[in-house]
Write a protein that binds this DNA or RNA. Structure first.
Lengths: 124, 124
DNA sequence: TTAATATATTCCTGTTTAGGAATATGTCAA
DNA sequence: TTGACATATTCCTAAACAGGAATATATTAA
């Protein structure tokens, strides 16, 4: 049932700092048993299991049984919705630099020719 | 008081779908009065104001007073923590392709030379 | 001044959620 | 079987949170 998760859930999933910690542990691409994650995170076992469950539901990690262990592995593709979404704004902060430059230039102009386009004293 | 927000808050801020909608409205870089956002989002005014407040606290939007309006504008730099964080995993899903290829090749080898590295039937 | 408009804030309520404690489930070893 | 180990799940509680309703604040117009 439902092998691919709702992309919206991914944003919720990574909103939790501890879950980003879990992801950080898995970020080397290796697989880890819950035990090992517990040790690395200094966190109680049920909490870790729950976070792993949330990440799995969101499609951010996968799990395979190996003996009595459950090996978790990062599924980075699950993070793609976030990547794609935030990538849209890349151009904004490069473009922002242009805007800052423009503003500085305009201010210089204002000092020179006393240009005033309305009351906006708190703009900076 | 605290002009730059805790980067961790940004993840929480964008976890809310409605707040990503607000960001979507502002994503053209233009400034919008709350009124206009309300219309575009078909959402009650207090809710919009609250979401804008959350986004402002997270450093994702800025606001300037203009007459009786409050003009909100996207501050894309506030999204950089998310961008930087998720960018780390770019290599994973390109690298994943390599892994898939390697696995396919290994399977071909297994068929040829009967290689077996342990019981792991559910790996795919 | 009063009225209208724009926005924020407060209060309330239902829902979600994180984490602790206890318990259940599943797997291996003897 | 029994026991040890690994992990998940259930139950509980406190905190966070979203949204609605009502209200407060601020600005403009008359």
């Amino acid at each position: 049932m439902m092998r691919t998760a709702n992309p919206a859930d991914v944003f919720k999933a990574i909103a939790e700092p501890r879950r980003r910690e879990v992801i950080a542990v898995l970020s080397d691409g290796q697989e880890y048993a819950v035990n090992e994650i517990i040790v690395r995170m200094k966190m109680a076992q049920p909490a870790v299991s729950k976070h792993l469950g949330a990440l799995r539901k969101a499609g951010v990690v996968t799990v395979v049984k190996r003996g009595q262990h459950r090996m978790y592995r990062l599924n980075a593709e699950g993070l793609k919705p976030v990547h794609d979404w935030v990538k849209i704004f890349e151009r904004h902060w490069t473009h922002q630099i242009v805007q800052i430059k423009q503003r500085a230039e305009r201010k210089a102009l204002e000092r020179m020719i006393r240009l005033d386009d309305g009351p906006n004293p708190k703009e900076d």
